[in-house]
Design a protein around this nucleic acid. Structure first.
Lengths: 212, 212
DNA sequence: TAGATTGTTAATCGATTAACAATC
DNA sequence: TAGATTGTTAATCGATTAACAATC
Protein backbone atom coordinates (compact mmCIF):
# COMPACT_ATOMS: atom_id res chain seq x y z
CA UNK A 1 0.00 0.00 0.00
CA UNK A 2 2.40 2.67 1.20
CA UNK A 3 5.33 2.92 -1.22
CA UNK A 4 7.73 5.07 0.77
CA UNK A 5 8.19 4.15 4.40
CA UNK A 6 5.73 6.10 6.51
CA UNK A 7 7.31 8.03 9.41
CA UNK A 8 5.85 7.23 12.79
CA UNK A 9 4.88 10.87 13.37
CA UNK A 10 2.71 10.63 10.30
CA UNK A 11 0.97 7.52 11.58
CA UNK A 12 0.24 9.22 14.86
CA UNK A 13 -1.23 12.21 13.08
CA UNK A 14 -3.35 9.92 10.92
CA UNK A 15 -5.21 8.89 14.07
CA UNK A 16 -5.90 12.56 14.74
CA UNK A 17 -7.21 13.12 11.26
CA UNK A 18 -9.45 10.14 11.71
CA UNK A 19 -10.84 11.59 14.93
CA UNK A 20 -11.39 15.00 13.44
CA UNK A 21 -13.16 13.50 10.45
CA UNK A 22 -15.48 11.51 12.70
CA UNK A 23 -16.39 14.75 14.38
CA UNK A 24 -16.93 16.40 10.98
CA UNK A 25 -19.22 13.56 9.98
CA UNK A 26 -21.19 13.81 13.21
CA UNK A 27 -21.70 17.50 12.55
CA UNK A 28 -23.08 16.69 9.13
CA UNK A 29 -20.16 18.03 7.09
CA UNK A 30 -19.83 16.28 3.75
CA UNK A 31 -16.64 17.91 2.56
CA UNK A 32 -13.66 19.27 4.43
CA UNK A 33 -10.52 21.07 3.27
CA UNK A 34 -7.01 20.50 4.58
CA UNK A 35 -7.21 24.05 5.84
CA UNK A 36 -10.29 23.33 7.97
CA UNK A 37 -8.93 20.05 9.26
CA UNK A 38 -5.71 21.80 10.15
CA UNK A 39 -7.51 24.45 12.16
CA UNK A 40 -9.32 21.77 14.13
CA UNK A 41 -6.06 20.07 15.05
CA UNK A 42 -3.48 22.85 15.13
CA UNK A 43 -1.65 21.37 12.18
CA UNK A 44 -0.75 23.14 8.93
CA UNK A 45 -2.79 22.37 5.83
CA UNK A 46 0.39 21.44 3.96
CA UNK A 47 1.23 18.92 6.65
CA UNK A 48 -2.07 17.20 6.25
CA UNK A 49 -1.88 17.03 2.48
CA UNK A 50 1.67 15.74 2.65
CA UNK A 51 0.74 13.10 5.20
CA UNK A 52 -2.21 11.86 3.20
CA UNK A 53 -0.13 11.77 0.02
CA UNK A 54 1.82 8.84 1.47
CA UNK A 55 -1.26 6.78 0.82
CA UNK A 56 -2.77 8.33 -2.29
CA UNK A 57 -4.76 11.28 -3.51
CA UNK A 58 -8.05 11.36 -1.68
CA UNK A 59 -9.15 14.91 -2.39
CA UNK A 60 -10.43 16.99 -5.27
CA UNK A 61 -8.76 20.22 -6.30
CA UNK A 62 -10.87 23.23 -5.61
CA UNK A 63 -13.18 21.17 -3.40
CA UNK A 64 -11.41 19.36 -0.61
CA UNK A 65 -11.95 15.90 0.84
CA UNK A 66 -15.18 13.96 0.98
CA UNK A 67 -15.57 13.23 4.66
CA UNK A 68 -17.16 9.79 4.36
CA UNK A 69 -14.71 8.75 1.70
CA UNK A 70 -11.56 9.84 3.51
CA UNK A 71 -12.90 8.32 6.70
CA UNK A 72 -13.30 5.01 4.91
CA UNK A 73 -9.75 5.16 3.58
CA UNK A 74 -8.22 6.08 6.94
CA UNK A 75 -10.20 3.36 8.62
CA UNK A 76 -8.68 0.81 6.31
CA UNK A 77 -5.18 2.32 6.54
CA UNK A 78 -5.28 2.27 10.34
CA UNK A 79 -6.48 -1.33 10.38
CA UNK A 80 -9.83 -0.43 11.90
CA UNK A 81 -11.94 -2.46 9.50
CA UNK A 82 -11.09 -5.55 11.51
CA UNK A 83 -11.87 -6.17 15.17
CA UNK A 84 -8.96 -6.54 17.57
CA UNK A 85 -9.35 -8.82 20.56
CA UNK A 86 -7.23 -7.58 23.46
CA UNK A 87 -5.93 -8.90 26.75
CA UNK A 88 -5.99 -6.79 29.89
CA UNK A 89 -3.18 -7.57 32.29
CA UNK A 90 -3.69 -6.26 35.81
CA UNK A 91 -7.16 -5.65 37.22
CA UNK A 92 -6.48 -2.84 39.68
CA UNK A 93 -8.20 0.54 39.69
CA UNK A 94 -6.77 1.46 36.34
CA UNK A 95 -7.46 -1.95 34.83
CA UNK A 96 -11.08 -1.75 35.89
CA UNK A 97 -11.41 1.72 34.43
CA UNK A 98 -10.03 0.43 31.13
CA UNK A 99 -12.46 -2.46 31.30
CA UNK A 100 -15.38 -0.08 31.57
CA UNK A 101 -14.15 2.32 28.93
CA UNK A 102 -16.64 2.40 26.07
CA UNK A 103 -14.37 4.05 23.54
CA UNK A 104 -12.47 0.88 22.64
CA UNK A 105 -15.49 -1.01 21.33
CA UNK A 106 -16.48 1.81 19.00
CA UNK A 107 -13.35 1.26 16.96
CA UNK A 108 -13.34 -2.51 17.06
CA UNK A 109 -11.13 -3.06 20.09
CA UNK A 110 -12.47 -5.57 22.55
CA UNK A 111 -11.05 -6.83 25.80
CA UNK A 112 -11.66 -10.57 25.69
CA UNK A 113 -9.33 -11.86 28.40
CA UNK A 114 -8.35 -10.69 31.87
CA UNK A 115 -5.21 -11.65 33.73
CA UNK A 116 -3.96 -10.91 37.22
CA UNK A 117 -1.28 -12.35 39.41
CA UNK A 118 -3.25 -11.85 42.62
CA UNK A 119 -4.74 -15.23 43.69
CA UNK A 120 -7.62 -13.38 45.32
CA UNK A 121 -8.64 -11.92 42.00
CA UNK A 122 -8.16 -15.02 39.89
CA UNK A 123 -11.48 -16.71 39.30
CA UNK A 124 -13.52 -13.56 39.84
CA UNK A 125 -15.88 -12.60 37.07
CA UNK A 126 -15.86 -8.94 36.02
CA UNK A 127 -18.16 -7.61 33.33
CA UNK A 128 -18.74 -11.19 32.25
CA UNK A 129 -15.08 -12.10 31.96
CA UNK A 130 -13.20 -14.49 34.21
CA UNK A 131 -9.93 -13.28 35.68
CA UNK A 132 -7.19 -15.72 34.76
CA UNK A 133 -3.87 -16.35 36.42
CA UNK A 134 -0.82 -15.04 34.56
CA UNK A 135 0.22 -18.64 34.02
CA UNK A 136 -2.67 -18.99 31.61
CA UNK A 137 -1.17 -16.45 29.23
CA UNK A 138 0.78 -18.94 27.10
CA UNK A 139 -2.35 -20.97 26.54
CA UNK A 140 -5.08 -18.37 26.15
CA UNK A 141 -3.37 -15.67 24.09
CA UNK A 142 -2.79 -17.89 21.04
CA UNK A 143 -6.14 -19.58 21.49
CA UNK A 144 -8.02 -16.28 21.40
CA UNK A 145 -5.69 -14.95 18.69
CA UNK A 146 -4.87 -11.92 20.77
CA UNK A 147 -2.29 -9.57 19.26
CA UNK A 148 -2.77 -6.58 21.57
CA UNK A 149 -2.31 -6.30 25.32
CA UNK A 150 -3.12 -3.55 27.79
CA UNK A 151 -0.54 -3.63 30.54
CA UNK A 152 -1.76 -2.07 33.79
CA UNK A 153 0.40 -3.73 36.40
CA UNK A 154 3.08 -2.52 38.80
CA UNK A 155 6.36 -1.41 37.24
CA UNK A 156 8.39 -4.29 38.67
CA UNK A 157 6.22 -6.89 37.00
CA UNK A 158 5.84 -5.19 33.63
CA UNK A 159 8.87 -6.57 31.80
CA UNK A 160 8.22 -10.15 32.86
CA UNK A 161 4.59 -9.93 31.80
CA UNK A 162 5.58 -8.34 28.49
CA UNK A 163 8.01 -11.18 27.82
CA UNK A 164 5.31 -13.79 28.43
CA UNK A 165 2.82 -11.94 26.28
CA UNK A 166 5.21 -11.53 23.38
CA UNK A 167 6.24 -15.16 23.65
CA UNK A 168 2.55 -16.03 23.37
CA UNK A 169 2.09 -13.96 20.22
CA UNK A 170 1.29 -10.41 21.32
CA UNK A 171 2.61 -7.83 18.87
CA UNK A 172 1.42 -4.57 20.37
CA UNK A 173 1.45 -3.41 23.98
CA UNK A 174 -0.21 -0.38 25.47
CA UNK A 175 1.97 0.05 28.52
CA UNK A 176 0.69 1.92 31.56
CA UNK A 177 3.70 0.99 33.68
CA UNK A 178 6.28 3.78 33.79
CA UNK A 179 9.14 1.71 32.44
CA UNK A 180 10.78 1.26 29.05
CA UNK A 181 10.05 -2.30 27.99
CA UNK A 182 12.67 -4.28 26.10
CA UNK A 183 10.93 -5.85 23.15
CA UNK A 184 11.90 -7.39 19.80
CA UNK A 185 11.79 -4.95 16.94
CA UNK A 186 8.64 -6.43 15.43
CA UNK A 187 6.69 -5.65 18.60
CA UNK A 188 5.11 -2.24 19.14
CA UNK A 189 4.86 -0.47 22.45
CA UNK A 190 3.11 2.77 23.30
CA UNK A 191 3.65 4.35 26.65
CA UNK A 192 0.72 5.78 28.61
CA UNK A 193 2.36 7.76 31.34
CA UNK A 194 0.41 10.53 33.04
CA UNK A 195 3.28 11.34 35.38
CA UNK A 196 5.74 11.89 32.52
CA UNK A 197 3.15 14.09 30.81
CA UNK A 198 2.72 16.15 33.96
CA UNK A 199 6.45 16.50 34.46
CA UNK A 200 6.95 17.73 30.93
CA UNK A 201 4.44 20.47 31.68
CA UNK A 202 5.79 21.49 35.07
CA UNK A 203 9.08 22.04 33.30
CA UNK A 204 7.46 24.95 31.49
CA UNK A 205 5.47 26.17 34.48
CA UNK A 206 8.59 26.23 36.64
CA UNK A 207 10.59 27.92 33.88
CA UNK A 208 7.89 30.56 33.45
CA UNK A 209 8.00 31.27 37.18
CA UNK A 210 11.72 31.94 37.04
CA UNK A 211 11.48 34.31 34.07
CA UNK A 212 8.16 36.10 34.44
CA UNK B 1 18.34 28.97 33.22
CA UNK B 2 18.27 27.43 29.77
CA UNK B 3 20.04 29.75 27.32
CA UNK B 4 18.94 28.30 24.00
CA UNK B 5 15.26 27.44 23.72
CA UNK B 6 14.75 23.81 24.70
CA UNK B 7 12.88 21.73 22.12
CA UNK B 8 9.82 19.99 23.46
CA UNK B 9 11.16 16.56 22.49
CA UNK B 10 14.10 17.22 24.77
CA UNK B 11 11.82 18.11 27.68
CA UNK B 12 9.89 14.89 27.17
CA UNK B 13 13.08 12.88 27.16
CA UNK B 14 14.23 14.63 30.32
CA UNK B 15 11.33 13.00 32.13
CA UNK B 16 12.57 9.63 30.90
CA UNK B 17 16.07 10.29 32.09
CA UNK B 18 14.66 11.25 35.44
CA UNK B 19 12.79 7.96 35.64
CA UNK B 20 15.75 5.90 34.59
CA UNK B 21 17.94 7.64 37.15
CA UNK B 22 15.44 6.93 39.93
CA UNK B 23 15.64 3.30 38.98
CA UNK B 24 19.46 3.48 38.99
CA UNK B 25 19.39 4.99 42.44
CA UNK B 26 17.01 2.33 43.72
CA UNK B 27 19.41 -0.31 42.43
CA UNK B 28 22.23 1.32 44.36
CA UNK B 29 24.13 2.68 41.36
CA UNK B 30 26.16 5.75 42.23
CA UNK B 31 27.42 6.60 38.79
CA UNK B 32 25.95 6.08 35.36
CA UNK B 33 27.26 6.78 31.85
CA UNK B 34 25.27 8.20 28.97
CA UNK B 35 25.87 4.86 27.30
CA UNK B 36 24.19 2.91 30.11
CA UNK B 37 21.32 5.35 30.42
CA UNK B 38 20.83 5.11 26.67
CA UNK B 39 20.63 1.36 26.76
CA UNK B 40 17.97 1.54 29.46
CA UNK B 41 15.84 3.86 27.36
CA UNK B 42 16.63 2.96 23.76
CA UNK B 43 18.20 6.33 23.16
CA UNK B 44 21.70 7.03 21.83
CA UNK B 45 24.36 8.15 24.27
CA UNK B 46 25.03 11.23 22.14
CA UNK B 47 21.39 12.19 22.36
CA UNK B 48 21.46 12.12 26.13
CA UNK B 49 24.64 14.17 26.39
CA UNK B 50 23.29 16.70 23.92
CA UNK B 51 20.00 16.97 25.76
CA UNK B 52 21.66 17.49 29.12
CA UNK B 53 24.02 20.07 27.64
CA UNK B 54 21.08 22.42 27.23
CA UNK B 55 21.19 22.83 30.97
CA UNK B 56 24.85 22.51 31.82
CA UNK B 57 27.63 20.00 32.24
CA UNK B 58 26.62 17.51 34.89
CA UNK B 59 29.08 14.72 34.18
CA UNK B 60 32.76 13.98 34.57
CA UNK B 61 34.91 12.88 31.64
CA UNK B 62 36.03 9.32 31.96
CA UNK B 63 33.54 8.69 34.75
CA UNK B 64 29.97 9.52 33.83
CA UNK B 65 27.20 11.12 35.84
CA UNK B 66 26.72 10.97 39.57
CA UNK B 67 23.22 9.54 39.92
CA UNK B 68 22.15 11.49 43.00
CA UNK B 69 23.58 14.70 41.62
CA UNK B 70 21.99 14.48 38.19
CA UNK B 71 18.72 13.42 39.79
CA UNK B 72 18.81 16.54 41.90
CA UNK B 73 19.46 18.73 38.88
CA UNK B 74 16.70 17.14 36.79
CA UNK B 75 14.30 17.40 39.68
CA UNK B 76 14.88 21.13 39.81
CA UNK B 77 14.80 21.53 36.03
CA UNK B 78 11.49 19.67 35.77
CA UNK B 79 9.99 21.75 38.56
CA UNK B 80 9.64 18.78 40.88
CA UNK B 81 11.13 20.46 43.91
CA UNK B 82 7.80 22.15 44.51
CA UNK B 83 4.46 20.47 45.15
CA UNK B 84 1.73 20.92 42.58
CA UNK B 85 -1.88 20.97 43.74
CA UNK B 86 -4.16 19.63 41.02
CA UNK B 87 -7.86 19.60 40.24
CA UNK B 88 -9.59 16.49 38.97
CA UNK B 89 -12.52 17.21 36.68
CA UNK B 90 -14.86 14.28 36.15
CA UNK B 91 -15.22 11.54 38.73
CA UNK B 92 -16.15 8.58 36.54
CA UNK B 93 -14.32 5.27 36.38
CA UNK B 94 -11.21 6.89 35.01
CA UNK B 95 -11.37 9.82 37.41
CA UNK B 96 -11.59 7.47 40.36
CA UNK B 97 -8.65 5.47 39.09
CA UNK B 98 -6.63 8.67 38.83
CA UNK B 99 -7.71 9.58 42.33
CA UNK B 100 -6.34 6.32 43.68
CA UNK B 101 -3.14 6.42 41.68
CA UNK B 102 -0.20 6.60 44.08
CA UNK B 103 2.39 7.67 41.53
CA UNK B 104 1.37 11.33 41.53
CA UNK B 105 2.14 11.96 45.20
CA UNK B 106 5.64 10.55 44.91
CA UNK B 107 6.63 13.43 42.65
CA UNK B 108 4.78 16.15 44.47
CA UNK B 109 1.53 16.12 42.53
CA UNK B 110 -1.55 16.13 44.69
CA UNK B 111 -5.20 16.14 43.76
CA UNK B 112 -6.77 18.68 46.12
CA UNK B 113 -10.10 19.38 44.46
CA UNK B 114 -12.75 17.30 42.73
CA UNK B 115 -15.33 18.58 40.29
CA UNK B 116 -18.21 16.90 38.52
CA UNK B 117 -21.26 18.16 36.69
CA UNK B 118 -23.48 15.31 37.86
CA UNK B 119 -25.72 16.58 40.70
CA UNK B 120 -25.79 13.07 42.13
CA UNK B 121 -22.05 13.14 42.62
CA UNK B 122 -21.76 16.68 43.91
CA UNK B 123 -21.47 16.66 47.69
CA UNK B 124 -20.12 13.11 47.87
CA UNK B 125 -16.86 12.67 49.71
CA UNK B 126 -14.25 10.48 48.00
CA UNK B 127 -10.89 9.76 49.60
CA UNK B 128 -11.53 12.62 51.95
CA UNK B 129 -12.34 15.16 49.24
CA UNK B 130 -15.72 16.70 48.57
CA UNK B 131 -16.98 16.61 44.99
CA UNK B 132 -17.78 20.16 43.91
CA UNK B 133 -20.08 21.37 41.16
CA UNK B 134 -18.37 22.72 38.06
CA UNK B 135 -19.76 26.12 38.96
CA UNK B 136 -17.35 26.22 41.87
CA UNK B 137 -14.35 26.20 39.54
CA UNK B 138 -13.98 29.99 39.26
CA UNK B 139 -13.92 30.30 43.03
CA UNK B 140 -11.92 27.29 44.17
CA UNK B 141 -9.15 27.09 41.57
CA UNK B 142 -7.63 30.49 42.42
CA UNK B 143 -8.25 29.96 46.12
CA UNK B 144 -6.31 26.70 46.15
CA UNK B 145 -3.72 28.12 43.74
CA UNK B 146 -4.25 25.24 41.34
CA UNK B 147 -2.28 25.46 38.11
CA UNK B 148 -2.81 21.90 36.83
CA UNK B 149 -6.03 20.08 35.96
CA UNK B 150 -6.74 16.46 35.09
CA UNK B 151 -9.59 16.39 32.63
CA UNK B 152 -11.50 13.09 32.62
CA UNK B 153 -14.89 14.06 31.31
CA UNK B 154 -16.86 13.24 28.16
CA UNK B 155 -15.53 14.73 24.93
CA UNK B 156 -18.46 17.10 24.43
CA UNK B 157 -17.84 18.82 27.74
CA UNK B 158 -14.08 19.01 27.56
CA UNK B 159 -13.66 22.35 25.77
CA UNK B 160 -16.11 24.16 27.98
CA UNK B 161 -14.48 22.83 31.12
CA UNK B 162 -11.04 23.73 29.80
CA UNK B 163 -12.20 27.29 29.14
CA UNK B 164 -13.48 27.65 32.68
CA UNK B 165 -10.33 26.18 34.16
CA UNK B 166 -8.03 28.41 32.16
CA UNK B 167 -10.13 31.42 33.00
CA UNK B 168 -9.67 30.48 36.65
CA UNK B 169 -5.89 30.28 36.34
CA UNK B 170 -5.07 26.75 35.21
CA UNK B 171 -1.95 26.67 33.03
CA UNK B 172 -1.54 22.95 32.34
CA UNK B 173 -4.14 20.36 31.41
CA UNK B 174 -3.75 16.62 31.25
CA UNK B 175 -6.56 15.84 28.84
CA UNK B 176 -8.09 12.38 28.76
CA UNK B 177 -10.88 13.44 26.39
CA UNK B 178 -10.10 12.54 22.77
CA UNK B 179 -10.37 16.05 21.43
CA UNK B 180 -7.91 18.80 20.55
CA UNK B 181 -8.52 21.60 23.02
CA UNK B 182 -8.24 25.21 21.88
CA UNK B 183 -6.14 26.99 24.45
CA UNK B 184 -4.12 30.21 24.67
CA UNK B 185 -0.47 29.75 23.86
CA UNK B 186 0.69 30.11 27.44
CA UNK B 187 -1.38 27.08 28.46
CA UNK B 188 0.01 23.57 28.11
CA UNK B 189 -2.01 20.53 27.16
CA UNK B 190 -0.94 16.90 27.03
CA UNK B 191 -3.20 14.36 25.48
CA UNK B 192 -3.74 10.98 27.13
CA UNK B 193 -5.46 8.95 24.49
CA UNK B 194 -5.33 5.16 24.66
CA UNK B 195 -7.45 4.77 21.56
CA UNK B 196 -5.13 6.91 19.43
CA UNK B 197 -2.18 4.91 20.77
CA UNK B 198 -3.88 1.64 19.85
CA UNK B 199 -4.79 2.89 16.39
CA UNK B 200 -1.23 3.95 15.68
CA UNK B 201 -0.18 0.38 16.45
CA UNK B 202 -2.87 -1.40 14.47
CA UNK B 203 -1.63 0.60 11.52
CA UNK B 204 1.58 -1.43 11.68
CA UNK B 205 -0.13 -4.71 12.54
CA UNK B 206 -2.49 -4.35 9.60
CA UNK B 207 0.35 -3.33 7.28
CA UNK B 208 2.41 -6.35 8.38
CA UNK B 209 -0.52 -8.62 7.60
CA UNK B 210 -0.72 -7.31 4.06
CA UNK B 211 3.00 -7.74 3.37
CA UNK B 212 4.07 -10.78 5.36
C1' DT C 1 50.00 6.83 32.37
C1' DA C 2 46.19 4.50 29.75
C1' DG C 3 41.38 4.01 29.33
C1' DA C 4 36.99 5.89 29.54
C1' DT C 5 33.63 9.21 28.94
C1' DT C 6 32.12 13.87 28.71
C1' DG C 7 30.64 18.28 26.22
C1' DT C 8 30.54 20.30 21.86
C1' DT C 9 31.09 21.07 17.02
C1' DA C 10 30.22 19.80 12.41
C1' DA C 11 27.91 16.57 9.28
C1' DT C 12 23.91 14.09 8.38
C1' DC C 13 19.51 13.01 8.27
C1' DG C 14 14.63 13.69 8.22
C1' DA C 15 10.55 16.36 8.79
C1' DT C 16 8.04 20.68 7.94
C1' DT C 17 6.80 24.45 5.18
C1' DA C 18 6.26 27.22 1.09
C1' DA C 19 5.07 27.56 -3.40
C1' DC C 20 2.76 26.47 -7.50
C1' DA C 21 1.11 23.86 -11.53
C1' DA C 22 -2.80 21.00 -12.15
C1' DT C 23 -7.59 20.78 -12.00
C1' DC C 24 -12.10 20.62 -9.94
C1' DT D 1 -14.74 31.37 -16.57
C1' DA D 2 -12.85 32.61 -11.88
C1' DG D 3 -11.91 30.93 -7.42
C1' DA D 4 -10.50 27.36 -4.53
C1' DT D 5 -7.88 23.64 -3.17
C1' DT D 6 -5.30 19.62 -4.11
C1' DG D 7 -0.83 16.86 -4.72
C1' DT D 8 3.93 17.42 -5.20
C1' DT D 9 8.42 19.43 -5.62
C1' DA D 10 12.00 22.20 -3.81
C1' DA D 11 13.60 25.02 0.07
C1' DT D 12 13.90 25.44 4.81
C1' DC D 13 14.20 24.25 9.17
C1' DG D 14 15.37 21.48 13.08
C1' DA D 15 16.78 17.33 15.31
C1' DT D 16 19.96 13.39 15.49
C1' DT D 17 24.31 11.35 15.01
C1' DA D 18 29.25 11.03 14.52
C1' DA D 19 33.50 12.42 15.81
C1' DC D 20 36.94 14.17 18.72
C1' DA D 21 39.52 17.28 21.77
C1' DA D 22 39.37 17.90 26.61
C1' DT D 23 39.93 15.76 30.85
C1' DC D 24 38.82 12.82 34.67
Amino acid sequence: MAQRPVPDVVVRRLTQYYRALLSCRDRGLEVVSSQMLGEMLNVTAAQIRKDLSYFGGFGKQGIGYNVANLLEHLKRILGLTETWPMALIGIGNLGQALLHYRGFAREGFEIVALFDSDPHKVGQIITGLTVHADQQIPQLIPQLEIKIALLSIPTEKAQEAADMLIQAGVQAILNYAPVTLRVPEDVWVRQMDPLAALESMTFYLAAAKETP
